[in-house]
């Protein structure tokens, strides 16, 4: 009898093995933080003196990173076009999302200065975390990186998401680099406004398009936060049957230092964050940032940014 039960368990293990393997491969990544040069330390903006939010027990901060990782880019040396700091306070069920403009010109943890989206390409997740942590004076507990195709497949694997798209997104020259043969092709995009059910491709079009947005990356950041919120809402409905499809969708497209046991603890918490009024969105619009930095990038007005950031991120 025991042998038969054990063999049944073995069948179950065989079924969930790919998902478990992927979970083990994707999670618990070791973060290697580069050591900055002395010069780097001198030019980093100092967070001291800025008012800080009082530490809250159980609160944690995650850096979300999203990258175009199509064939135009070398694997593991991709830019992070999307960088969002998320702080969760479980006791009050409050979430704060701070979108960091990809074109922000900052001191990099790997040395020198550059656009903040380059930190990951120079030194991986550790460099991205160290750059954000030092420049913004924020303690980051964890990171999650996801590739472009991974986000599309993730949304499809969870059956699409419901989003209230804030405005029509019209783009006559949207990059057709995901499924086309030539990664420099263009296509037309028209994502209409209002509440709707989006599949992965259309959700990606909504968050990625920037040609039709006067605010360019700022507008895009706002849309990214809307989609993130919708994914979180949908994730509450996940069940064990969904794990194999999810693992297939995310194969190689997701990395995080968060361990599996931690993920299991976070899922019920994510499910409880369902008050739209408890989700605070922060964007670094002018006067916090403005043009005029090298390569068309943005100047960071640290004297304004740091007090704002430290209201929400101790």
């Amino acid at each position: 009898m025991l042998a038969i039960v054990l063999s049944a368990v073995a069948g179950g293990i065989a079924y969930f093995m790919p998902a478990a393997q992927l979970a083990l491969d994707s999670t618990g990544q070791v973060i290697r933080v580069p050591t900055p040069s002395p010069t780097q330390l001198l030019i980093s903006p100092s967070p001291t003196g800025a008012p800080s939010a009082a530490p809250v027990a159980g609160a944690f901060t995650v850096l979300l990173l999203g990258s175009d990782d199509d064939s135009k880019f070398v694997s593991d040396h991709v830019l992070t076009q999307s960088m969002i700091l998320v702080r969760v306070v479980p006791s009050t069920r409050q979430v704060t999302m701070l979108s960091i403009p990809r074109d922000l010109w900052v001191p990099l943890s790997t040395g020198g200065s550059g656009k903040i989206d380059g930190a990951y390409s120079y030194g991986g997740a550790g460099a991205a975390i160290a750059t954000v942590s030092r420049d913004f004076g924020v303690h980051i507990d964890d990171y999650i990186w996801i590739g472009l195709l991974g986000l599309v497949k993730l949304i499809d694997a969870i059956g699409g998401i419901d989003v209230v798209t804030s405005h029509p997104v019209m783009d006559d020259y949207y990059p057709a680099d995901i499924y086309g043969g030539w990664p420099y092709d263009y296509e037309r995009v028209a994502v209409l406004a209002g509440p709707q059910h989006l599949d992965g491709v259309h959700a990606m079009q909504y968050v990625r398009s920037r040609h039709g947005d006067l605010q360019s990356d700022f507008g895009r950041s706002q849309r990214q936060q809307e989609v993130l919120t919708a994914i979180r809402v949908k994730a509450k409905e996940l069940s064990p049957e969904d794990l194999p499809a999810l693992s297939k969708a995310l194969g190689g497209e997701l990395k995080t230092n968060i361990g599996i046991s931690q993920v299991a603890q976070m899922l019920p918490l994510a499910a409880s964050l369902d008050d739209p009024n408890a989700i605070h969105q922060v964007f670094l619009l002018p006067p916090y940032t403005h043009g005029g930095a090298p390569d068309g990038s943005l100047v960071a007005e640290w004297s304004l940014i740091l007090p704002l950031v430290h209201q929400y991120f101790p």
Binding site: S7, A10, G11, G12, F16, E237, L238, S239, E241
Partner: peptide
């Protein structure tokens, strides 16, 4: 049988 039964369970979410 365990493997087949688990495989045949369709995701409600998708």
């Amino acid at each position: 049988a365990t493997y087949i039964v688990l495989s045949s369970r369709t995701s409600k979410i998708a």
